[in-house]
Design a binder for these strands. Structure first.
Lengths: 123, 123
DNA sequence: CAGAATCCTTTACGATACTG
DNA sequence: CAGTATCGTAAAGGATTCTG
């Protein structure tokens, strides 16, 4: 059994790919890299994410053990979300991706423009 | 402007995250790491992907310049898909993710089971 | 066998309004 | 301000069928 076959067959690998298989998970994890943040500030830093979707994303990350929630007593409500140790262990792979984006992102955009002018449709 | 703000604001980074923001892109790229493959074999190696979704995924990856298609003449049709140089440059970051999965995948599953027995619902 | 076409279900995401 | 509820749209994914 070759390495990639075992990777594809192993449910842990598929589980890990699923962690990135949506628009916001990686972005939110990355936005928490410097430390815990309140939801309001998170939305400012991320930009373009609705309150509802941020709540859903944080809940999903919490479900997967990557993020933890801390509520401070009193009013107005003050809540903070931060990465768990498991969540922090995910930062290097995500950072590898960010680095790739800076190096090759323009090549992807160039390929897209080339394809659009040829095929007239976007898959 | 801090590093993560610039990363989040840069459209190249969001574009890169979007490349992984679906179930199959990363899996198919990984399955092509050893060299070009025919769609039929790809489906065998990947497992659990329908012909239609594989076609769509390959078309999407081609649109983004990560995969190229080569058709050999004659009948029955023989087609191969392989990574472009740009697509191959994406393998190290994806591999970093696979390595993370082998190390921490069971922790994620443990967290999920813990959450399921507590919250009674899965986000 | 490749892959396009059709139909269907589920889910992600967004906008809005409301509660504590 | 945090979080939920509701509604609506769009896209992803799956099953099936058909053609070159």
């Amino acid at each position: 059994m070759t390495a990639d076959q075992s990777l594809l067959a192993d449910c842990r690998a598929r589980l890990a790919f699923d962690l990135l298989a949506n628009t916001w998970n990686a972005v939110v994890i990355w936005a928490l890299r410097d430390g815990p943040e309140r939801p309001g500030r998170l939305r400012e830093r991320i930009g373009g994410i609705s309150p509802k979707v941020l709540t859903e994303t944080l809940s999903r990350l919490r479900f997967n053990g990557l993020v933890e929630r801390r509520a401070h007593p009193g009013a107005p409500p003050r809540v903070e979300y931060g990465l768990t140790e498991l969540g922090r262990s995910l930062l290097p792979p995500i950072e590898a991706f960010g680095a790739w984006a800076f190096r090759h992102g323009d090549e992807v955009m160039a390929a897209q423009e080339r394809a659009e002018s040829t095929d007239h449709r976007r898959p």
